[in-house]
């Protein structure tokens, strides 16, 4: 979606257009679900959260501020709501170590990569060694397509910190990948 189309869609939603509301829901449901699921690993909690998010959005549509990225706006709201829902569900986690036990810990899918099972296990192990924040930053960058400033805003850190999180995580993974013979390089022959 282009910036102007997105801006216009959001304007229409703010003025109470139900079609625009439906279009926004249909466009971003999968993105929000995926993101929420990788924080909470709980289908029901994520669905409830998206439901609350959209009911609240509709009720507040007149008072919402303009945005040039609906996806960023929704993901940020989703993040807040998911953490709130998790804390409400498990009040025992409230406290100083909450951020260590809560966090972005997705499952990975390497089926599309042409690597052996043993290499998939190595990849999984390497990724598991990354911190929740590193995984979240890379996912927001690669999967959700947010910019560095947007990720920084979402995770409440400096842009420089996001860059460091991404860079350090990639450095670890690169060390694994550049071991001799790890990859079966397939398509690159055609490209280069």
């Amino acid at each position: 979606m282009t910036v102007t189309a997105e801006d216009e869609l959001w304007q229409r939603f703010r003025s109470g257009d139900e079609q625009a509301f439906t279009a926004i829901y249909n466009t971003y449901f999968a993105t929000l679900y995926r993101y929420g699921y990788h924080i909470a690993s709980d289908d029901e909690l994520v669905k409830d959260t998206i439901q609350t998010l959209f009911v609240e959005l509709w009720r507040a549509h007149r008072t919402l501020s303009p945005t040039d990225s609906i996806k960023f706006y929704l993901l940020k709201a989703m993040r807040r709501q998911v953490y709130r829902a998790i804390r409400q569900q498990t009040p025992a986690l409230m406290g100083t170590d909450a951020d260590n036990s809560l966090g972005f810990s997705p499952e990975f899918d390497f089926i599309t990569l042409e690597v052996q099972q043993q290499q998939q296990a190595q990849l999984r192990q390497a990724i598991n060694q990354l911190s929740h924040r590193q995984k979240e930053a890379i996912t927001l960058l690669y999967i959700d397509g947010l910019s560095y400033p947007e990720i920084a805003d979402m995770m409440a850190v400096q842009v420089r910190t996001v860059y460091n999180l991404v860079y350090e995580a990639l450095e670890r993974l690169r060390k694994l990948l550049s071991q001799p013979g790890f990859w079966l390089l397939t398509l690159m022959g055609l490209m280069v």
Binding site: F110, L113, I138, I143, L173, L177
Partner: peptide, 14 residues
Amino acid sequence: RQLVTMWQLSPINP
């Protein structure tokens, strides 16, 4: 290129 393309979350779809 591999670093970017390997980052595939599961499940991909709700």
